[in-house]
Structure formats: structure tokens, C-alpha cells
Design a protein around this nucleic acid. Structure first.
Lengths: 219, 219
DNA sequence: TACTTATTAGACCGTTTCGTCTAATAATTC
DNA sequence: GAATTATTAGACGAAACGGTCTAATAAGTA
């Protein structure tokens, strides 16, 4: 209580000693996240050990447990990082004013396929991977993963609404249901592409999904 | 070479000592497979230890490594067991002569949903689970998993062909592509149902998938 | 400079991992 | 019964697991 009177406890001003850097300014932390994403998108959470990530990131264990409370905490950080990385991807595709709404979606799937091809179709979607492992994961993961998927779906539903406004998509289809179905199927396609090490499943799915637009029913 | 002249080496007749029982007659082996399926459909391969399965099956370690060469060998046996279990399910739904082809498919998805509901949507599809973990699995798993999926797809494509013969499905749709898309999406739906602990994703997917039939385009 | 805190560094710990090993028991044939 | 092989039983081992610990170093403030 002999402090410099900071009653609201919101921000202690007179800090002493070395100031802590912004979380994302730490090179070690960034290296860990990057290595973590690479490994987890390929092999999942349970199959990847902390030491394996340390070695890949060339960061000692002390740093890891300085920046993250536990492996689980690290996993949640990876989800957050993946989420914001993906937000950029979606921006790039969905905000492209030079394309029609449905063409933007197709552009997204093409970018995603190119991304998978870049790694020989060995890396999948972090969200899909962790979702499948959910039975072995700490409970906080569930809401985190659902939240990310919900974000993606919301943006996609908006895109479908734009398509309807353009007259590009039948007004009889429910944009929200369509968006949910898209992400359900798309995650399935990624899983399958990873299994077969081939882009074929991605194409099969998008090919058939787009028939919903063309032949669209009325009610 | 002083044997009882068995030149073709196909079946050594004069065996001595205790005869080895049929592989599937062993109670221990069956218990291991059952416990293994329960655990792996819920948590995956990497997250489940051999000891955990031994404890659940109440079988000692000696028996495990008598019946299976390794954990990986056990995993392949699980895939085979799951495959034949699933063959029965498909027979039940797809050979039902009291229903129209497309109604048989709907019946299958309903049975599958009921099956998931029975375990609180905590258990998924073994093939989907292992497919996602493929990056961390021995190489033999890949062909085994692809093979199982191919079997399912072939049967489903046949069902779609029946539907076309009945005039229930537009002849403009490719049964093989449709079958592949179905299993891609269905696996995605199971993954999502497991994540959300809810049947909703299964319904969303089947609901939208069946619109391909109704509104179906020509070529 | 002296002090204080952030961050790095990796040795170390207890537990769990998959798999091996020896011994006991069971089910046959001779 | 004797011999032979299948199967059960679980103690044990080496390596990997997530996580803790102490010490060293870096980066600031007073």
C-alpha cells in the first residue's frame, strides 16, 4: 500500500527494471508460433511434442515457458494466430471489388489449393485438425475452434447475401445454411486432400457445391 | 527337409502342440479391438496409449503383443475391423428393398446420426480421425484408409446409378463425382458434429446435399 | 553505477510412452 | 504322462513426454 497511489489498478505507470516488450515483438515467440503452425497443421496437437517445436524454432525451453503457461496455452495461441492469418486471406479474396461475389469465393478456394500445393498437400487446416482431436484436448479449445469457424461462416454468409443482391444467387437459398454447408464440406475436402496428397477432392467438392448455385431451386 | 513331404508349403498338416485358434475366436483380441475402436474414434491414434486400451479391455500387455506386432499393426487391424463393421451398416441401409434408392441413403445418414447420438456426439469416424492424423502415422495407413473410403464411395455411386435408373435422380449428374462429394462432405459433417457435440451439422449437410437431387441441373 | 525486471539457456525431474523379457498356464498330440 | 506350442501375465527398460528450476544475460530506470 506504499505504492505510488494507483487506485484503479488499470495501468501501473511507474514500472522499474527492464520493460516487457510487446508480445508480438518477441522474435522467439514469433518463431515458436510459426514452427508450431507448421507442425500442428501437418501432424496435429497430440502427435507433436514441445521439444520438437523448440528444435524447429531454435528456441530454448526456458523461452517457451516464459511466453506460454503450458502446451495447451500455446495451442490456444496458435488458434488465435491462425485466425488472424486466415482473416487476411479472407480479406484478400472476399474484398476483391474486381470480382463478382461468387467469383470471390472461387478465388478463395483457388488460393487455398495453391497454399496446400505449396506444401505437397501435407498440411491441412489447423481448425479441422484440432477439431478432430477435440476428444483429447483441453476443454477451452472447443469454444475457440467453434468461434473461429463461426467467424468464417459469417463472412461467407455475407458474401452469399451480396450474391443474392446481385441476382447472382437464387433468393430461395438460405445464405447462413449455405455458408455452414460450405465450411462443413470444405473442411472435409481438405481432410481428404491431405489423405490423398492431391487437389482432386478440393475440386470435386467445389465443383459439386457450385451446382447448387446454377441449378438452384425456388422455394 | 525331413518333414512329412509337404512340397507346396500351402498348409503344414501335422502340427504338434496347442493349435492356434482362429484369430477372431480369441476373446482377448476381440476385447482389444472393441476398446481400441471406442478410444480411437473419440481421441485419435496419437492421443491414445496402448496401456489405456489394455486397461479398458482388461487384457494384459503380453496378450496385446502376442496378437499384434506393434501399435501400428493394431491400428491397421482397427481399420479392417471398422471396415467390416461399416459394411454391415451399409448393407442394412443400401440393400433395403422397401425403400427407394435416395431414401436408402437418407436412412443411412439417420442411422449414423443415431449412432453418434448414442455416444453424445463424442465419437467420430475412425477413418476421418486417422486421415487427419495421417502426417503422424506410418505410411501403410494411407492406402488402407483410401481403400476403405473407395469401397464406401463405390457402393454409394452404385446407389446413385440405381436412383437414375428409377428416374429418381437426374441423368445429368455423374454418380461417381456425386458419391465422392457425398463422402467428402459427410466426413466434414461428422468432424463438425463432434466439435459442436450436436447433430445440427449432419442435418445441415444432408439438407443441402439433397437439393442437388431436386433442383438438379441438366449436363 | 546500482538496481530491477525480462528473457534466454538448458540441466534436470517425475511420469508416461512403446516395446521386450521371462515365467506361468492352457490346450493340444504322441 | 511327456512333449510341444499358444496364450496369458506383468515386471522391466530405454526413450520421450510436459514441465520446473537455477543461473546467466539483456535492457531498461534511478
Amino acid at each position: 500500500m506504499t505504492e505510488t497511489t494507483t487506485p484503479h489498478a488499470v495501468s501501473e505507470k511507474p514500472r522499474r527494471g527492464r520493460p516487457r516488450g510487446a508480445p508480438d515483438a518477441s522474435q522467439a515467440r514469433r518463431d515458436l508460433i510459426r514452427a508450431g503452425l507448421e507442425h500442428l497443421t501437418e501432424k496435429g496437437y497430440s502427435a507433436v511434442g514441445v521439444d520438437e517445436i523448440l528444435k524447429a524454432a531454435k528456441v530454448p525451453k526456458g523461452s517457451f515457458y516464459h511466453h506460454f503457461r503450458s502446451k495447451a496455452d500455446f495451442g490456444l495461441a496458435l488458434i488465435a494466430a491462425y485466425d488472424s492469418y486466415f482473416a487476411g486471406l479472407l480479406d484478400q479474396a472476399f474484398l476483391d471489388r474486381g470480382r463478382s461475389p461468387l467469383d470471390r469465393l472461387r478465388h478463395f478456394t483457388e488460393m487455398a489449393e495453391a497454399g496446400m500445393a505449396r506444401h505437397g498437400f501435407r498440411r491441412g487446416c489447423l481448425v479441422g485438425n484440432l477439431g478432430q482431436e477435440m476428444g483429447a484436448l483441453p476443454d477451452d479449445f472447443r469454444q475457440a475452434l467453434i468461434g473461429v469457424l463461426t467467424t468464417w461462416q459469417t463472412r461467407t454468409a455475407d458474401l452469399f447475401r451480396d450474391a443474392q443482391a446481385c441476382g447472382q444467387l437464387s433468393a430461395g437459398l438460405d445464405p447462413d445454411a449455405l455458408a455452414q454447408a460450405f465450411w462443413i464440406g470444405w473442411e472435409g475436402a481438405i481432410l481428404r486432400a491431405k489423405l490423398e496428397l492431391s487437389p482432386a477432392p478440393l475440386r470435386t467438392f467445389t465443383g459439386l457445391f457450385s451446382r447448387l448455385f446454377d441449378g438452384g431451386a425456388s422455394p
